[in-house]
Amino acid sequence: MDIFLQQIVNGLVLGSIYALVALGYTMVYGILGLINFAHGDIVMVAALVALTVVQLLSGSGLPPAVVIAAAMGAAMLVCIVIGVTVERVAYRPLRRAPRLAPLITAIGVSILIQYSAALVWGKQYISLPELLQPTSIAFGGAQFTDLQVYIFLLAAAVMAGLLWFIKSSRIGRAMRATEQNPDIAGLMGVDTNRIIAFTFVLGSAIGAIAGVMVVLYYGLGHYFMGFMLGLKAFTAAVLGGIGNVAGAMLGGLLLGVIESLAAGYIGDLSGGVLGSNYRDIFAFLVLIFVLVLRPSGLMGQRISDRA
């Protein structure tokens, strides 16, 4: 039972990072119908920027909270600039193009960001200087650190804030209108170009938060790290129902828990035939089953053929 509880805790922390990254995918998809393949790489840039800032400030004697805040601020700024630029230069001209064109562009942008980052930061794994000393907390047989708690709480706060924002604010309403029908939203006085740009701002900023979390939690960054993270997060977004913000959160948390449980129990359940080496398969299998049985995802309302 202890083990089970521990696995759930592991899964929830991992899942909250997936969920934050998944938000970026799902918001862009909701409005543009585009898989923004480059989003994972924006998270990567955030992680590397944060690492650089922490490295620069680590000798200054500032309290860790200030250092982290500065790192997060810098990461968000850089990511927003990149996100908006990518939207303006690479995606906007293709908005009315057939589906495959922006998808390929997104793959191209992803490669561009990766190798630009490699030029800037080199190809080594970059490690986080000693900054935090996480204290262990034991709870009901499960063991976790205060850092994990903060990560989870921050993720939850960001998600709650986002939900509120989309539901209640003026821009949020405009976003929903644009999502439903950009043309009519335009007729109603919504500047759809600005709303779409703003979606990228929001997605990149949240991605930046996720990137900083990854750095703090795992303590390392690398120019290639965005790829797999992005893939998992995208899976999470589809699992929850892509285009649906609440669904992305649910999908992220669920995927984290499924992965943890699968890695922890698959070996025993299959009598040793399968092992933790099949962990990644589980993410994809779940995805396939969800798509086949309920193509709109857990919380999506759309029919499959819209895509």
């Binding site: 696995q7 290639f224 992965e259 070996g267 092992g275």
Partner: peptide, 17 residues
């Protein structure tokens, strides 16, 4: 006997087991 990949950074699940 557990396995991970050369791209992974989260090992909590297998370590817990």
């Amino acid at each position: 006997r557990e396995h991970t990949t050369d791209k992974d950074t989260d090992f909590k699940a297998i370590l817990t087991k």
